[in-house]
């Protein structure tokens, strides 16, 4: 039983270590090739300000970092 507990704790610890942090996931997403292919803005406030300045609409693509 004790052996099993140790094994489970170790396995959980390993899984936590292997799971990328939100920061790492975001970094990977921001490096996506599709974001380089056009002038995508990822800052909402900047997008709003630019749309107002240019008097145009925002084409919004909503995605996630998660799998």
């Amino acid at each position: 039983m004790r052996f099993l507990s140790v094994l489970l704790i170790s396995a959980t610890g390993l899984a936590a270590q292997e799971r990328p942090s939100p920061e790492e996931l975001l970094k990977t997403k921001l490096a996506s090739p599709f974001l380089k292919k056009a002038d995508w803005i990822t800052d909402y406030d900047k997008a709003l300000a630019l749309a107002k300045k240019r008097k145009t609409l925002i084409f919004g693509y909503f995605t996630t970092t998660g799998p």
Binding site: K29, F62, T63
Partner: peptide
């Protein structure tokens, strides 16, 4: 497309310092 509209990519994320990480849900 980018010439006609502002291209905005919203990314759901809980990363520290990332603003509007729940924008999709809010909208």
């Amino acid at each position: 497309m980018g010439e006609d509209y502002v291209l905005f990519c919203s990314i759901d994320s809980k990363a520290a310092g990332w603003k509007h990480g729940e924008l999709r849900k809010q909208k």
